[in-house]
Amino acid sequence: MSVTLYHNPACGTSRNVLAMIRAAGIEPVVVEYLKTPPTRAELDGLAARLVVPVRDLLRVRGTPYAELGLDDPALTDGQILDAIAAHPVLLNRPVVMTDQAARPCRPKEILFEILPQARPATP
C-alpha cells in the first residue's frame, strides 16, 4: 500500500499522524508541502481521492484565506485548488493519501478512517 503524507514538521498534529503511520509499520512518502509545494496536477490527483469536499483542504488560521476571498461559498473546486497551488500554506495539514482515499487528518484520529491498520490494538 502506498501512503503519502502532506506534512508540516512544525505542526504537532502532523508529527503525530506521521508517528501513527510509522507505528503501523508503514513508511509513507513524506511531502513537506511548504518546501516542495504540490503542483496543480498533483492537487488534482489528491482531490480525486478525497472522501470529503475539496473545501476541507483549506486551512483558515494563519493563512491568507480571508484576504483571498476564499470564504466565498460559490468558489469551485478548481478555484480552491488553484489557490492552494499558489499559496501552499492554505493546505489544511496533515493530509494523508492512500491508494483508495485521501483526507485531511485533523484531528489525528481521522487517520483511522482511511488507514484502519494505524489504529492501535486494543488490549
Rank of each mutant, 00 (worst) to 15 (best):
R103M: 11
G78S: 10
L43R: 12
K108S: 10
L91S: 12
V29H: 12
I26L: 00
A23H: 06
V54D: 00
P107Y: 05
L90Q: 01
T39Q: 15
Q100Y: 02
D44H: 06
G62Q: 04
A86Q: 06
Q100W: 00
P37S: 10
C105G: 04
P94C: 09
R49V: 06
E67D: 12
R40M: 08
F112I: 14
G45L: 07
M1F: 07
R61Y: 04
R93P: 12
R40F: 14
M1R: 11
P28E: 10
R103G: 15
P53T: 02
L57Y: 01
A86L: 03
C11F: 04
L43A: 06
V30L: 05
R40H: 14
I114Q: 00
L81G: 04
I80G: 04
E32P: 09
D44K: 15
S2A: 13
P123A: 03
R106P: 12
L75C: 08
E27L: 08
L57R: 01
L58Y: 02
P94W: 01
R119S: 14
K108G: 09
A85G: 12
G69V: 07
R15T: 08
A74F: 15
T76E: 01
Q100I: 02
T63Y: 13
A74K: 15
V3D: 00
P37A: 10
L115K: 02
P37N: 05
V17E: 07
D99V: 13
A118R: 00
A101Q: 12
V96T: 10
E27M: 13
V95Q: 01
D44P: 14
